[in-house]
Computed example of a mutant assay.
Amino acid sequence: MRFMNFHYVKRYRMEMNLLRWQAPMLRLPHGYLLVPWHHSLTQRHAEVKYHSFQGGIDAQVFPCLAELEGCQRLMSEIKAKDGFVPEATWLVEYVGAGFRNAEYCGTIQAVRTQKNGANIQNVGVVADHRGLGLGKGLLVASLLGMQQVGITRVGLEVTAENRSAVQLYQRLGFRSVRTLYKSVELACIPAGS
């Protein structure tokens, strides 16, 4: 017998004004390349999303991130939205081990929410490639792409427990504008079952 237990996860709604943003230098470490959006890369975005989020807090908050099929569905939904912003959608490819062993290891997408506003979706970096500045590189590339198409207000949501992401967003100019709580269902198996 399983009982469901609910837990509330604290999340921040963060926003930035791109009209006031001073873009930092866009740099990735040696052996990493930014790959712009192309519809043929939908599956690659889904795979990177899955490998980035599986087993983490965001996969608990959003169960679709815990399964490859869920990530495929999510990526298909994002690219089908009227407001999808291809200019702000990127992959990071690691080619440091040679092009035959290249792998995708970072992803970001954006969706326009109004004429001059957009939301960043699912910034993800695969665990083996974290701590190298790839998340910052993805964000800078995405924000520059949004500027290119006239977007001036950008928002995102982040789980408060993900301190490194919150700090990165703050360093780039995002400010917390609202605190949200999302109910997360946790399965509990009683002792002796």
Rank of each mutant, 00 (worst) to 15 (best):
M1S: 10
R2Q: 08
N5C: 00
V9A: 06
K10M: 02
K10A: 04
R11N: 07
R11L: 07
Y12D: 00
Y12N: 03
E15N: 09
E15V: 10
M16F: 06
N17E: 12
L19Q: 14
R20D: 15
A23T: 12
R27T: 10
L28I: 04
L28A: 06
P29S: 08
H30L: 13
H30V: 14
G31F: 12
L33T: 10
L33W: 06
L34G: 06
V35M: 09
W37Q: 03
Q43M: 08
H45W: 09
E47P: 05
E47F: 06
K49V: 05
K49C: 10
Y50P: 13
Y50L: 13
H51F: 10
H51V: 02
S52L: 11
G56C: 03
G56L: 13
D58Q: 15
A59K: 12
Q60S: 10
V61A: 09
V61N: 07
V61G: 03
L68T: 10
C71T: 09
R73E: 02
L74G: 03
L74K: 08
M75C: 06
M75K: 06
S76H: 13
S76V: 05
I78C: 13
I78T: 14
A80P: 13
A80C: 14
G83T: 14
G83A: 13
V85E: 12
P86H: 04
T89W: 09
W90D: 09
W90A: 10
E93Q: 15
E93M: 15
Y94G: 15
G96M: 14
G96H: 14
A97M: 15
N101A: 13
N101D: 12
Y104S: 11
C105W: 07
C105L: 12
G106F: 08
T107G: 11
T107N: 15
T107L: 11
I108W: 03
I108K: 05
V111G: 10
Q114E: 15
K115I: 13
N116S: 15
G117W: 04
G117N: 03
A118Y: 02
N119E: 15
I120D: 02
I120Q: 04
Q121G: 01
Q121M: 13
N122R: 07
V123D: 00
V123Q: 01
V126H: 09
A127R: 06
D128E: 14
D128M: 08
H129Y: 12
G133K: 05
G135N: 08
L138R: 04
A141S: 10
S142M: 06
S142A: 14
L143R: 05
M146N: 06
G150N: 04
T152A: 10
R153W: 01
G155V: 10
L156D: 09
V158T: 08
T159I: 11
A160I: 07
A160F: 03
E161R: 11
E161A: 12
N162A: 02
A165T: 04
Q167Y: 00
Y169S: 04
Q170W: 00
V177L: 01
R178F: 00
T179G: 00
L180D: 03
L180C: 00
Y181H: 00
C188P: 03
C188W: 09
P190C: 08
